[in-house]
Design a protein around this nucleic acid. Structure first.
Lengths: 339, 339
DNA sequence: TTGATTGATCGAACCGTTTCGACTACGAAT
DNA sequence: ATTCGTAGTCGAAACGGTTCGATCAATCAA
């Protein structure tokens, strides 16, 4: 491949002049500029990204660190981020951490050694040590979906509390009083907020929350299945479920089906986050949808600003909270008369 | 960050000796080795990947080029590839081309300028010009899912013909005679093969194929929806559908539902490729599942061999064809008596 | 004893850029 | 007429590694 040397030779100028000319980073006479451009064209010159990055100290690669690529929330995020960052000539390195805390650190370390220009991350870990670790990284980082307390980084997410509040209120208005919540480990940022949203809505309507009706599962959906099976086998079973994620909702739906209950006639079901091709799912789930495109766009732009503006890394951390949208499906109905 | 110079100074040896010692690439006395290792540890040395790559001529990054990350087939592929390649210290750059032929070339060009060590690709394009383009790339490339005629590259896929043959035979055995096929653009490698599989099975049972029953849609599912609506509105409508992808199957299912038909009582439905959380979909689809893990594993290993073995790039191209698995769901039943 | 071999180490060149400091002309200011 | 500032260009020094050839002492065969 042609190097800058070839261009210089062809144009009859010094290497440095070629660099100045191509990057518009110094005064160059019109005449020389033309000669350089022509020579560059003639030899088919493309700057070696590796060399540029080495000199600059960091590359034009972006690390995208996610817990679970299979989750449509994240794959959509990846898609949008990819398309936005490609406009500024960046490429995206994707790493899945399988929600494993230690893998998370290892991955960030690896990205640092690759001298990526920035990192977009949906962290799973949330402890003080991790916050410190992130600060020491000395690379622009934007957090998505889950915040890390004390990390003082840009953070983009939707209003998680509002999401479950919406759903719970919707069910209450429909007449439900015994509503169960299937949420994630409250140690996690979003899980705690979604739980809070549920409680807030219940409290606002003066409805008691039976501790047995507040389930802890994980975001994978399998645990949700088991828990819902248990829940629906209780004598005083709930008439409606609020689940904290799309996978949990699907797990719950499967449990409802497998136990021979009908949804929504006997049990109403709601969840957070879109399910792919939800339109073909019967019943169609009523959900609080996160505006993924918006989240991805804002996060990508936060990162770009930090990377391109000089002194960008010292910018005070910003936060963007998007508003979820209630998408009404066919998975909710008034509670059966007997209940 | 600490450089090799810092280590050399600390250990009191030459820079080159440190390199030799750390990489085990030259004779070093036990005494020196120990000193170097200690010094390296003391200053917290990590080689600069960028510098190494620049010198070597290529990086330890792998390009993964996919048409549609939202498709669970590809997101599962990504996951497995990522985990395998991370074992050999590689990282994966993911680019979605949105099945756009020109974007495909641009992406490959970009990856070349980033001096990636290798490329995994599920190409959408299949014309002689593209084959030539791929050869000129001078980077190890492994094709997945879709082959490119005349490219002479490693190729990994499942037996696409067999997949639809399986499904068609299954429906025929069940008693169906009017079976429609919803496939992709036959210009595409896999689409043509899947179409062939359908025809083969029909011919083997001496069943005529009504041209009106062979639909061309695309892999996105929306076109499939429209076509199935049209198909089912015909007076002599089919009693069973074979669709060529997961998204098409979902589009078809939605069409069946929206027109008020019941599946499988009135229309039987089958498809190729897994659908995520297919277990909660009612009915559960009967599908020919591709062994994604196997495909990803073989492809990744092909690539690793080409990258690490010296002369690997000159290895003769290999092909691996995996056998799809028939997964019986609840979306098929014998045709209604009236038909 | 001598010449060849080998093991250990080093200096320097190189990968392909960017960038800093130096140099030359030349018109403007004094 | 001298100085100054500046546009235009250049050479050389980085960036942080790898690797080739040279050096030198110790070992070995003849």
């Amino acid at each position: 491949m042609a190097t800058i040397r070839d261009v210089a030779k062809k144009a009859g100028v010094a290497i440095s002049t070629v660099s100045l000319a191509m990057n518009g980073t110094g005064p160059v006479s019109a005449e020389t500029l033309k000669r350089v451009l022509e020579a560059s064209e003639a030899v088919g010159y493309r700057p070696n990204v590796l060399a540029q990055s080495l000199k600059r100290g960091h590359s034009k690669l972006i690390g995208l660190v996610l817990g679970d690529i299979g989750n449509p929330f994240f794959s959509r995020l990846l898609r949008v981020v990819d398309s936005i960052l490609s406009e500024t000539d960046h490429m995206v390195i994707v790493v899945e951490t399988a929600s494993h805390a230690e893998r998370e650190r290892r991955t960030l370390d690896q990205l640092r050694h690759h001298r990526v220009g920035g990192i977009l991350m949906a962290p799973m870990t949330n402890d003080p040590g991790f916050a410190a670790f992130l600060s020491r990284l000395d690379i622009p980082v934007v957090l998505i979906d889950q915040n890390v307390d004390g990390a003082n980084l840009d953070f983009v997410s939707s209003d998680n509390t509002l999401a479950t509040t919406m759903l719970t209120e919707y069910l209450i208005r429909m007449g439900h009083r015994r509503i169960a919540f299937i949420g994630g480990d409250p140690g996690q940022w979003t899980a705690a907020l979604r739980r809070k949203g549920f409680r807030d809505a219940m409290a606002a309507s003066n409805l008691p929350v039976d501790p047995a009706m507040e389930i802890v599962a994980d975001f994978s959906g399998e645990k949700a299945y088991d828990q819902v099976v248990r829940l629906l086998s209780m004598p005083q079973r709930p008439t409606a479920l609020v689940t904290a994620s799309n996978l949990m909702a699907l797990g719950a739906l499967q449990a409802i089906n497998d136990l021979g209950f009908s949804c929504p006639q006997e049990i109403s079901l709601t969840g957070v986050d879109d399910v792919p091709w939800s339109t073909v799912l019967k019943p169609r789930l009523t959900i609080a949808a996160q505006p993924v495109e918006e989240l991805a766009r804002v996060a990508a732009n936060f990162l770009i600003e930090r990377m391109t503006l000089r002194g960008g890394i010292t910018l005070p951390p910003r936060t963007h909270i998007a508003i979820p949208r209630l998408v009404v499906g066919t998975s909710c109905a008034p509670p059966p008369a007997s209940a």
